[in-house]
Amino acid sequence: MSEIEIRYAKEQERSDHEHHVPTAGAMIGHITANLAMHALKIEQAALFAKGPAALFLDQYGRAWIQKELAFWDDINRALHAEADLVPTTSEELLKYSMLTENGATKYADGKDQLFELVKDFDMQLLFITRAIKLTEKEGHKAQNQLMKELYAWIKEQIGLTQSFLGHEPTEGLPSAAEDDGDDAE
C-alpha cells in the first residue's frame, strides 16, 4: 500500500471507532451527510411537485437548498478546524446519511412530497440535538453554535411547512412521539 492509502485506511479505522463511541465529530458527520442528501431531495420535489406544493417549493425550496449547503460548508470547516473527520466522498455521504430516498417519490402528490421533506427535517433534529450535547461535552464551541443555529432554522422551516400543510407543528412527526422534554437550546 502507498503512503496515501495507509493514511486513508487509518482515517477509516478512526471513523469507525468514533462512530461507535460516538464523538461530536462523528455525530456531525451524520448531519452533514443528511444535509447533502436533503438538498437533493428538495431539488427533486421542487422539480416534480404539482399543485399548491409546487408554488410553496418554488418560493422556499431553492432557499432551503442554499441554506442547507451553506450550513454544510460552514459545518465542514468547523469540523476541519477541530481536526475532526469530514465526510467528503459520495460513499461517505451515503453511508452516514440517515435519510432515505426513493426516485418514485417524484410522482407522489405534491403535499406528500412536501411532508416527506418535513419528516426529513425532523429526522435531522434527532442528530442535531445529540451533536449539541456532544459538542458541549467536548468543548467544541464553534461547532456547538452552528448546531444551535441549524436547530433553530430547521424548527422554523418545520413550523412554516406544517402550517402550509394545515398541520399542527409536530403533527405526524416521529420526534413528537419520542420527545423526552429535553430542549436543545
Rank of each mutant, 00 (worst) to 15 (best):
E5L: 14
A53R: 01
A104H: 11
E156G: 07
L150E: 00
M37E: 12
L134K: 03
P52L: 03
L79R: 01
T89W: 04
S15P: 09
T23Q: 02
I28M: 02
L85V: 05
E13C: 07
Q66I: 06
A104G: 09
A53G: 02
K50G: 08
T135L: 00
D84W: 01
E18D: 14
I4L: 12
L57Q: 02
Q157M: 10
L160K: 08
L146W: 01
G181P: 01
S97H: 13
E11V: 14
Q113C: 09
E11H: 13
I28F: 04
R62F: 14
L69N: 11
A78F: 10
L57F: 08
T23G: 00
D16R: 09
A53D: 01
Q143E: 15
D112T: 12
L173G: 15
E11F: 12
L114P: 07
L35N: 13
K155N: 03
D16I: 10
G166M: 14
Q145A: 10
K41Q: 07
E43M: 12
L47G: 12
D73F: 07
A63W: 04
S2W: 00
E156Y: 07
R62C: 11
G61W: 00
L94A: 15
G110R: 08
I128E: 00
A176W: 07
Q12V: 06
L94S: 08
F121W: 03
G181F: 11
L126A: 11
D16L: 15
N102D: 14
E168G: 10
T170F: 10
L160Y: 02
A9V: 11
M27R: 10
G25Q: 00
V118L: 07
E171M: 13
Y107R: 03
G139Y: 01
I6G: 08
W153L: 03
A26P: 04
A108R: 08
P174K: 13
D84R: 01
P22H: 05
M37V: 10
L57Y: 03
E3Y: 12
L94E: 15
K50E: 09
F127I: 02
L47T: 08
L125H: 01
W72R: 09
S175G: 14
L47S: 11
E168H: 04
W153T: 00
K106L: 15
L69Q: 13
K67E: 07
H20I: 09
S15A: 14
T135P: 02
K119E: 11
G181Q: 14
D180P: 14
G166F: 09
I158N: 06
G139T: 00
P87M: 04
E43H: 13
I4N: 15
E149T: 00
Y107N: 03
A142N: 08
I128R: 01
T32E: 12
D120I: 06
A63P: 05
T88R: 08
M27E: 13
G29F: 04
H80E: 14
F115E: 05
G172L: 06
E136H: 09
K95A: 04
Q157C: 06
P87Q: 04
P52E: 08
